[in-house]
Design a protein around this nucleic acid. Structure first.
Lengths: 202, 202
DNA sequence: GCCGTAACTTGACGGTGTAAAGATCGGGCG
DNA sequence: CGCCCGATCTTTACACCGTCAAGTTACGGC
């Protein structure tokens, strides 16, 4: 009876994440419903609940993967640009960050949006992963302060929070549909970098 | 028959906006449903649809009022601080902006969130009002550039977009529940201002 | 071979936005 | 004054949603 679909799916959990990601990618977060997801992997409505406590847990899992992908992208930039000067490195990071948000708007929304952080409640493992991701940013900011690309008058933490907020605001412009011109957005991103960094960076 | 409630409400539209604002204020945007709203003003579920095309239209109307309130707050700051130097003026504006977001998080979310701008579609009159509001910011930025509080190397528009994005990102931190410490947030806000403004402003 | 348990299904409940059609009333005109 | 039109409001219905509770199936270890 291999022709008819088996009672046990076998690989349901990864299949769910895969399918959910696909739905989110091209129908948005609002387009993802547990029922539609279940249908799309050919399983009953409640089956997903044996692998995820509720919808929030599923979203957290997807957001986690998002953080992993983003971290990977950013680590790549750091490794690739070894001999560059400070400001170029900083600019590269910001551009990469914005590009990630542009290319995966729905994932970014999940990672940093209120669906999880305010309305839902973030999984401990998601919290940890997001904290680690921010830690990367703080480290960069520290290095930029040492190289005098960023001013050192405030603590690295505060400077990191402030500059990250600026970057995040930029990403939000796109994601919330407030400002959609992709071309302009890159120019605005560069403007943000120029506003924040000291003109005489190392 | 004045004891029993009349068939025609008479002042339903303003009553709806009032009630909806109240619900949003203390139950969040997600807490507002057309049915609950209708119940709360003692009217049938479909009655609101005679005054607002759909839920989106109602939300736009409330967002508009939000813009009016925000504009009023900010104009107040401008008028009140006449003799101040440039940077103090700029700081005052940013603090006021952030405070508005802190005090009316749900309204702010409605005004600048994706509920209206991406998922829904903004009313023409809302678009106009939000554009006018941003225009205020561009004007301030122009004056700050003239006074050398902000650098003049980029156009006023780009500089306004970039700096507004920074401010908006800050507001978002709070609204999305990513960073909730109100005290810290004000410090971060000041850090943003210091990062953006030139140290030797007029 | 049996049986516990994990995986999955079915049905139901209360919630949502809103389309369609019916009921009621106030105001302007004959 | 009487009538009727149009604005206002109500009722009913539909297709969704998340998920609780209870039932069904199949696999792994004894």
């Amino acid at each position: 009876m291999s022709a008819t679909k088996p009672y046990h799916h076998g690989e349901l959990r990864p299949a769910l994440i895969e399918a959910a990601s696909a739905i989110i990618r091209d129908s948005g977060i609002d387009g993802l419903s547990m029922r539609r997801l279940a249908d799309s992997v050919g399983v009953s409505r409640m089956a997903p609940y044996h692998h995820f406590k509720d919808k929030n847990a599923l979203l957290c899992a997807i957001a986690e993967i998002g953080f992993e992908a983003q971290d990977r992208m950013i680590r790549d930039v750091l490794e690739r640009s070894d001999g560059e000067d400070g400001k170029a490195l900083f600019t590269g990071w910001v551009r990469t960050y914005i590009r990630f948000a542009q290319d995966n708007p729905e994932t970014y929304d999940l990672m940093y949006g209120k669906e999880i952080w305010k309305r839902g409640d973030p999984t401990p493992s998601l919290q940890q992963k997001s904290k680690a991701s921010f830690r990367l940013w703080v480290d960069l900011v520290e290095r930029m302060q040492a190289r005098q690309v960023l001013p050192g008058e405030h603590s690295a933490l505060r400077t990191a929070q402030a500059s990250w907020a600026a970057m995040h605001g930029l990403a939000r412009l796109l994601i919330d549909g407030i400002y959609a011109q992709r071309q302009d957005l890159e120019e605005i991103a560069d403007t943000v970098v120029n506003l924040i960094t000291r003109s005489n960076g190392d």
